[in-house]
Design a binder for these strands. Sequence first.
DNA 1: AGTATCACGTGATACT
DNA 2: AGTATCACGTGATACT
Lengths: 502, 502
Amino acid sequence: LNSLLPESGIVADIEVESISSSNPDNFYELKSQPIAVRSSEGISLFMVTHTPANQQSPYQPLSLPLASTMSSRVLLRQQLMRAQAQEQERREQQQQQQAAQFMAERAVSNPSSPAISVSSPVTRPTATQVPMEVLKVQTHLENPTKYHIQQAQRQQVKQYLSTTLGNKVATQALALTHSPQSASAPEQGHPPGAGSTPNSPMAMLNIGSNSEKEIDVIDEIISLESSFNDDMLGLLDAGLLPSTLPVSANLLDVYTNQGVSAPAIAVSNSCPADLTNIKRELTGSVIQHQSKQCKLYLFHIIVERRRRFNINDRIKELGTLIPKSSDPICQWRANQRLRGALHSLRFIRPQSSVAMLSESETHWVFFGGRGGSVFSQELEMQARQHGLPVASPSGLNMSKLAVEIIKQESDLKQGAIGFLEPLAPLGLASTTLDLNTFNFSDLDNPVMTFGLGLDPDPSIEDILMEDTLSPISASDPLLSSVSPGASKTSSRRSSFSMEEES
Amino acid sequence: LNSLLPESGIVADIEVESISSSNPDNFYELKSQPIAVRSSEGISLFMVTHTPANQQSPYQPLSLPLASTMSSRVLLRQQLMRAQAQEQERREQQQQQQAAQFMAERAVSNPSSPAISVSSPVTRPTATQVPMEVLKVQTHLENPTKYHIQQAQRQQVKQYLSTTLGNKVATQALALTHSPQSASAPEQGHPPGAGSTPNSPMAMLNIGSNSEKEIDVIDEIISLESSFNDDMLGLLDAGLLPSTLPVSANLLDVYTNQGVSAPAIAVSNSCPADLTNIKRELTGSVIQHQSKQCKLYLFHIIVERRRRFNINDRIKELGTLIPKSSDPICQWRANQRLRGALHSLRFIRPQSSVAMLSESETHWVFFGGRGGSVFSQELEMQARQHGLPVASPSGLNMSKLAVEIIKQESDLKQGAIGFLEPLAPLGLASTTLDLNTFNFSDLDNPVMTFGLGLDPDPSIEDILMEDTLSPISASDPLLSSVSPGASKTSSRRSSFSMEEES
DNA sequence: AGTATCACGTGATACT
DNA sequence: AGTATCACGTGATACT
C-alpha cells in the first residue's frame, strides 16, 4: 500500500479536477484545460531550447515563423497546457484503474459512491454524487471571495473523497493546503465543516501539525516541488531531502507576516492554498520539459501572484479596521475598503499639512481632534468666547478635524499646551491638553482657523454608504460616447474655475 | 489655417509617438505598435461580424479555424492593432507632408528644429533634438510613478513642439490631458516646468479652463470620442454636439471625488490623462470597424482601467496620510503604503475588538492611546502604583496600544471615565479622561490587562523601514525549488504548533 | 541573473 | 444588456 501513495495523491487531485470541470460554475484553473485537452489534435507547438539571441524579451521568444505575432509566454503557456493535457489523460486512465481497484477491495457502505462517478469526466455528476454538506464552507475569512469559497469547497470535496478512498491521501492534501479541517480528525469520516472551531484564527496555525506522521506524504510533495527544479533532478525519486520541514514552516511564516504582529486579526490568507495548488498543477506535468525559460516563466507567475495576494490581503485587513457599517456589503469591495481607511486616517490625523507646518518658520500649534467630538466643540466654543477670529471657508463648517492656532511670537506661555494623542506618532506630542485649565487668553495674539484643506467630516456611516467615488455609469465622460443618451443634464452644474485665465 | 486644425492635432500626437518610440526607455502604448505595423505583411485576421451563436464568452469569439485555440479578445485586439497600423501609416505620410509645409511657410529660428527629425521614426533623435528642459517634469503627485512622469514628459514635449508648430495644437492637447502647464500662457514659447506654481494643488483645477476659446479644438475631441459610437455616427463630421462642455467638466469631477471632499489632498490623478489618450488611440482608427463586440471589448478595457486607477489612487493617497519616514523610497511601493496605513489605523483604533467588547455582556472600559505616549505611560504607572494585576504576555511589553479595564460590577462609579478621542468615531466617546483627577482606586475590582491581540507597537519608523512582509526570496517555500541552495538554515527555527494533535 | 515592482488587457462573474 | 467586480498572466522595467 505504501508504494501506491505517490500515485494515490495524484489521483485525489484529479478526482476533484474532474468533478469541478463537469460542474457548470466551475473554477479558474479549469479554463485552460478544455483547450489543453483538445490541443493535442489542434495546433502543436514545441519548445525550442536553443533559442536565438533575441534579447528584447527576458524570456527569449522562440523563432518559429508562427511566433512572429505571438509572444513568447503565449507559446510557453501553450506548451505547458499541452503537457498538462497529456499528463491529465495519463493520470485519468491510471485513476480509473485505481478506483476500480479500490471498489473491489472494500465494501462500499455509502450508496452514493463518489469514487465511480467522479472518475468519468464525460458525465455530469456534481451535487448528486457528493453530499451537499461537503459543499458547505466555513471560513475564517471575514469577507471571503467566491474564489476562496470555491477553493475551500475543492478541498472539502477532496477530503471527503479521500475519507472514502483512504486516509493517507486526505492528510497529504490537507497538509499542503492550509485547510482548517486538518486539525479535526479525518478518520471519523463525517463531512467536514460541521463544528470543530470554525472561526478561530488559531485554526490557521494547524498547518502541517501532523507532518511528523506523514513523512511518506511529504515525499510526494518534494517530488512535486522539486520536479520543477533542474538542480534537484537527481533527488527526485530518492525522497530523502532533509530540508522539508523548514519549507513547510516557512509557508506559514509567509502568510502571517513572519509572526511579528497581528496574530488575532485576520491573517492574510485569501488564497495561500492556491499558490501551492497551482504550482503543483503547473509543474507536476512538465518534469520533462524543463528549461531556463520555463523556469523564469513560472517564477514570474508565482512572484506576481504573491504580490497580488499581499496587496489584496492588506486591503482586506484595512477593511477590518474601519468601523463597520450596518450594511456588510459596503466592505466587500476593495475600493470601499480603501475609501473607509482613507477617511478613518484622514479625520484622525491631519496628514501632510502637519509635517509641513512643523517645519515652517512660524510657530504653529496644532490641535488634533475629531470634528463633532467633545474636543473640537469645546475648542470652538472657547474660541468664540474669546472673540478669536475664526476662519470658516465656504463648504466647511465648524465640525472640522483641525483647529489651528497661530502664535505670532516665538514661544508659548508655559502651560498645559501641547498636541493631542493622535499626533503622538508624528513625534509632535509633548503634553496633554487639559481643557479644564487651558485658556485661550493665555496665548498672545492667537488666530484660530478651521479647515486648512481638511475634509468635511460627515459620519463614517455616511462615508461608507454613499458612493462618493463616481461609479462608472453612462454619465462618465469616458463612456458617454459608448452608452448614448446620458449625462446631458445633471453633470452640467459642476463648474470649473473660469477665473483662472489671465 | 482653421481647416487644418483637426489634422494638426493628430500630427502633434504622432510626433510624440515617433519620438518616444525611438527612445530606448519608451512607453507602454508603444509595445503593440511595432507588431501592428508589421502585421500588415504577417498574419491577417479579419473580423467576422456575423458571429455564430457561441455563447460561452460575452464577446462571442469568431469561428475561424485558427481561432480554436485563441480567445476572442485576442482576435479583437489584433484587428484593432491592424487598423491602427494602417491609420498610423496614413497619418505619418500626412504628417510628413504637413511638416514640410510648415517648414516652408515659416522661418525657423530654432536651430535644433524638432519638426523634421521627429517626423522620421527611423532615426534616433531623442534628446538632441528636444532640449533637456522639456524633459524635466514637475508634478503635483507626491510619489509619481515612472508611468506618470513619462506621461508628463510626453505632454511637455507635445506642448514644446506645438509652440513651434502652432498654438492651437498645444491648447488642444493640454485641454485633454490635465497638464498643470495649461494655466501658464503657452504663447511665451519657453520650455514648461520652469516656475508657475508647480506644486500647488490648485493647478489641477485649471483643466479645461480655456475651453471656451477652443471650440474648434473640441470638435476634434468629439469626432474622436464619438467615432467610437454607433449612434453618433451621423454627427461625426458635423462638429456641433451641444454636450461637450459638461463632458469636460465631468472629467474633473470624476477624479476629485465629485468635489465633495479633499480639495487640498493629492487629488487622485495618477493617469487620468491616459484614459483619454489611450481611448483616442484605441478608437481613433477603428471608425469603420464598429460592431457590438468591439464596443463591449473597448468598454471593458476602459472600465477595468478605471477601476485600477481608483484603487491605485487610493493607495497612493493612503501613502500621503501615514507619517513620513526619512527614506522616501519606503512609500513608493503599494505594499508599503498599505502597510503603513494598516499600522496607523491599528494603533489608533483597536479595531474589531472594540466593537466586540462594547456589545458583550460584561462592562468593558477601553482606554485607547498610543504605546509610549504620555497616556499609556501614565496609565501603566498608575496601574502599578495601585497594585493592579497587569497581564503582559510574552513578546508584548508595556508600550502597548491598549489598556483594558475590566470592571466586574455592572456600572462604574461616576467620574471622568470615558473613552479617549480615537474611539470617538465608533460612537463610543462619552467624556474625556482627565488623568489628573482620575483614580484607579475609584473602580471596584479593576483588572488591567495589556495586549488583547493588539499589535506590539514599534515606532512607525521601524514599521516602514523593516520589511516584515517576507520579501520573495530564495527562502520562499514556493520558490525554493526554483532557486536552489537557500532557506536551509535560518527558517528552520519557526515552529508550528505540534501540541494540536489529539 | 535574481528578485522585485507596476500597468495592462482578459475571462469569468455578479447584480440590476 | 448595462455596469460593475475580481484574479489572472504578461511584458516592461527597476535594483542589486
